[in-house]
Design a protein around this nucleic acid. Structure first.
Lengths: 338, 338
DNA sequence: AAATTTATTGCAATCGGTTGTAATAAGGGA
DNA sequence: TCCCTTATTACAACCGATTGCAATAAATTT
């Protein structure tokens, strides 16, 4: 920069101001300096700048890591979400740092930010840490979480309207004439819990008694859903449809059903959640509850930047949308349902 | 840090050295200072440190962006790969910056690094930029690419043995007694081109004349593969199996086949590539060529760090592995194949 | 005990920007 | 023409670490 200043015959400070479009510098010299900078392809050292300004223009995204081990077993939905966050961040001129806790505690979030690695964080899913996160918020607020909106929640979250999504899914099956709906998903996760409550609400509204036998709570991991479905089938419990808490779970379930020669959608109808890209490619194409993750990404970024500017964030509940494809149909045609 | 120095009754430089385990400082004071730092939970300002040392301990990963527009339409395989890169980077104590070109030219790679945003880059796929990248390498080498190993290539790449993978896929179908193999994939991409060549080699070896009608070159985008398959079916060309250049393409193709009441694997067998997580969930479960993307992630990181240390990188060709599931079977049983 | 070597520690410059404040140049009115 | 106001530009301190080199303290040798 000193060199550039010399070239332009001005001082370093003038160059600095010129490059940042500071009106203290006359437009003429500003343009001249910018021109020179371009010619000599001078690049501003972002590191130095960030160092002085104490900001990083970087947001870290913390992906959930199942059992703090590898997160290769990630749901494609989160990855799509990540893409959308990246887009939104880019538009806002920020960088995206992909972070990983590897079993750290919640206040690692604060540590990490204070370390000046990032200006703030986006957490994907509050998991079972809701209380801790709520507590963290009291002293440190530079984060936004993707997930459920819980009672008494103080931090800012963005997520789909899980209760309604679950309700919508169950209602749809009921409207098709299905009566024995199973629920599949890990209720430890608050988002899933809400979807489950929505499912219960729909049953209640239809005057159907919930049946605990049909409430499958399986961990998020790869094959647990498959096994759970198999167990359900073998238990002999009667069911004619499944509300799954994610598309991946739905797919696992379908695989299990096929193995027992149960046809989807005829014998058993099944509805997923998320509408990941591959749902439409699936066979049968998955009827599912769509989460608008593009909007979600934008809202999270918007809120985080708002917080960093000292403004009030506003949690948002994105509307969910039913995407009807072919994995659900009217009441069982064959006798094979149980 | 000054405060800490005062607290410890030593100078700032001693503190700095103590915290970085410099043997110039006696072990006793080193421990004492570290202890104090912990007590007063002092955190080193990484930004300041990086600024001085001119390094960032950050590696940027550049994901391919179809038509320089949104990369929401990303193949899950790349996302799995991303996860593995993140793991490898973490082990090596580096951060992962997720970058996006948004239509910039190749030498943006150099710009970006020189800007001190990262120490180096990992490019996912060389796309059609092979020559430019090769040229860039002459003057700037802080990057590694995931992709094909091409003749005359100077830069370092890590990727699966695409030629062999393609060959392996075709050979498997041939070994099952299939004779009319179609190929589905975008040959503009060098990786796909190599798989295609492997496919051709297998045909040749089996004494089968390739048929241009069966060589579908479709862009990577979402529905192109579906349409291409439909066109193939409607063209009336006779084929009994498909070698797809990715699992996602295979899934699209299967959807098209189903629509025309062609059974997979009986009427048409189909083999994918990648072995993404959902392949085993698919219906039918996809027989596919597995790329070891965990190993791939590690190798890329290892090579990049090697380059940054001034050592020679070594391109690697990962062995591929055939994963047999149920989307391929012996010769067509029904007459429906065309 | 003095001299010399070796082990620690401190001083001060430095990285490459930004910005408050002082200094200078330009413009306007009397 | 001179003085005062306003628009530009320059000076220099600062951000928070690292490190070469000088200085001091401790240990060893004579």
């Amino acid at each position: 920069m000193d060199d550039l200043a010399e070239l332009a015959g001005v001082s370093k400070s003038t160059v600095s101001r010129a490059l940042s479009d500071n009106p203290l510098v006359s437009k003429k010299t500003r343009d001249r300096i910018k021109q020179l900078a371009k010619e000599h392809n001078y690049r501003l050292n972002v590191n130095a700048r960030n160092f002085f300004l104490k900001e990083t223009l970087t947001i870290a995204v913390l992906m959930p890591s199942a059992n703090n081990a590898d997160w290769r077993i990630l749901d494609p939905f989160f990855l799509e979400l990540l893409g959308n966050i990246a887009d939104a961040l880019n538009e806002a001129g920020h960088e995206l740092l992909l972070a990983k806790t590897s079993g750290q505690s919640v206040n690692w979030i604060e540590e990490y930010t204070k370390l000046q690695r990032c200006d703030g964080m986006i957490l994907i899913g509050q998991g079972s840490e809701h209380d801790k996160i709520n507590h963290l918020w009291e002293t440190f607020d530079a984060f936004v979480v993707w997930g459920a909106k819980l009672p008494g929640q103080k931090y800012c979250s963005v997520g789909s309207d899980n209760f309604n999504g679950g309700k919508m899914a169950a209602e749809y099956l009921l409207s098709l004439g299905r009566k024995r709906l199973a629920f599949l998903g890990d209720r430890e996760l608050p988002e899933v819990m809400l979807r489950f409550k929505g499912y219960l609400a729909a049953l209640k509204q239809a005057g159907i008694e919930p049946d605990e036998q049909l409430e499958l709570s399986t961990p998020f991991e790869s094959d647990a859903a498959f096994t759970a479905t198999v167990r359900l089938i073998e238990s002999g419990a009667s069911f004619d449809s499944i509300v799954a808490a994610s598309d991946v779970l739905a797919m696992s379930a379908i695989r299990a059903l096929k193995q027992y020669d149960l046809e989807v959608p005829d014998d058993i109808s099944i509805i997923g959640y998320d509408d990941i890209m591959l749902s439409s490619y699936y066979n049968p194409a998955l009827t599912t509850v769509r989460q608008n993750c593009a909007e979600g990404g934008h809202q999270m970024v918007k809120n985080l930047l708002r917080i960093l500017d000292g403004e009030e964030p506003v949690s948002v509940l994105l509307p969910t949308e039913l995407v009807i494809r072919s994995s659900c149909s009217g009441p069982p045609t064959r006798k094979k349902s149980r």
